[in-house]
Design a binder for these strands. Structure first.
Lengths: 193, 193
DNA sequence: CGTACGGTTGAGTCCAATCAAGCAGCGTGG
DNA sequence: CCACGCTGCTTGATTGGACTCAACCGTACG
């Protein structure tokens, strides 16, 4: 799915995960969100896609044609209702993301990101305090509006002071949830070293 | 209108302008958008307001109760349709804003902001290449995710190299639109000094 | 005339970016 | 099986752009 391409299909993710992003002419990238099983992609597509999307893991999806979707919408009140809810929900998330990008420090961004991921239902086999992150460090960086190196450093810092553990590259264990929450909302800019 | 307060009213701006923002516990503020005559406020309010809103100039507005709105929605197909379009449009703007906050430099942010304002229909008496900015420097700063001082400096820089003129604090004249566009999209990080 | 407030400008600091080197996992092929 | 190279991740050193702190300006208003 490519930004500015005509929006011929709607898309519902059944399995796997994807990244949704926008590019600047010189290649700088901002990931505006991730899609997971159950996510609706292409809601913000009146005529042309507003962003590009790419799979992170192998995915399965349902991709009705735009015409088919419109027919579905005109038939079903419930479907219309649901789609509106999805759009509103995305809007609320986007506003939260703007605060993160505009006003939070590196550590606050990382803490917020981890908390957000922790609140999502994890794939089977991954238990609560453990988070599975399918995306690369570079993807996380472009989501948080920082560099890949800064992502590494902030993760290392959080690990060093015992807030999280990093058993392997794609997994995080939250050791001290309340501290992570304090850091995320940045109440007091407290020391993490 | 206050973040996290129960969303009892919907709100449509008739005249004037407002800022929509979210606060962090320590007072840092991110303006997530501005509202102008015709704007729908409170779309992203399923139960509680997702953000705070405050008038910039004296305003007139239509503020139906939540119940009244719901009745209106169940009656009118066109109204439902319109509200969905508004939400989708806000979502697209939010994604654009995320790119600005996460990936653009100071000058690019200011150029993008000015262009966005330039594309809005201006209040009567203000002709095309001239933009009226009702908000304060601090408001612009919180919209762009920078400090008030950086806003001043970037405006001064753009003025010094002849891209814009600043007849007074609340007005900007665009002298070189194409250069402003180049700067906004940051194709080449070209020099502005 | 004096104060207050928003805006502008300057000097110095700091956090994250950049540049650079090194490491770990892993599939490939000798 | 292991050396090889590739890719993605980590860590260190240095730089730089925006922030912070501070002084100053100008307009509005009592």
């Amino acid at each position: 799915m490519h930004e500015d391409a005509p929006a011929e299909h709607f898309c519902i993710l059944i399995q796997g995960s994807a990244k949704l992003y926008k590019l600047l002419p010189d290649g700088r990238r901002q990931i505006v969100g991730f899609g997971y099983a159950g996510s609706f992609l292409g809601v913000s597509a009146p005529e042309y896609y507003a962003f590009s999307a790419e799979a992170i893991e192998p995915i399965r999806m349902c991709r009705p044609s735009r015409r088919g979707l419109l027919r579905l919408l005109s038939d079903s009140d419930a479907m219309r209702q649901r789609l509106f809810e999805v759009a509103v929900n995305k809007l609320v998330l986007a506003q939260e993301h703007m605060v993160l990008l505009g006003r939070k420090t590196m550590i606050e961004r990382m803490a917020s990101f981890l908390l957000f991921q922790a609140k999502r239902p994890q794939p089977r086999g991954v238990l609560p305090p453990r988070i599975h992150l399918p995306m690369s460090r570079g993807d996380i960086a472009d989501y948080l509006g920082v560099t890949l190196e800064s992502v590494c450093r902030s993760l290392a810092k959080l690990a060093k002071c015992g807030v999280i553990a990093l058993p392997n590259v794609h997994e995080v264990i939250i050791l001290d949830l309340s501290r992570l929450e304090t850091l995320a909302h940045g109440a007091s800019r407290e020391c993490v070293s």
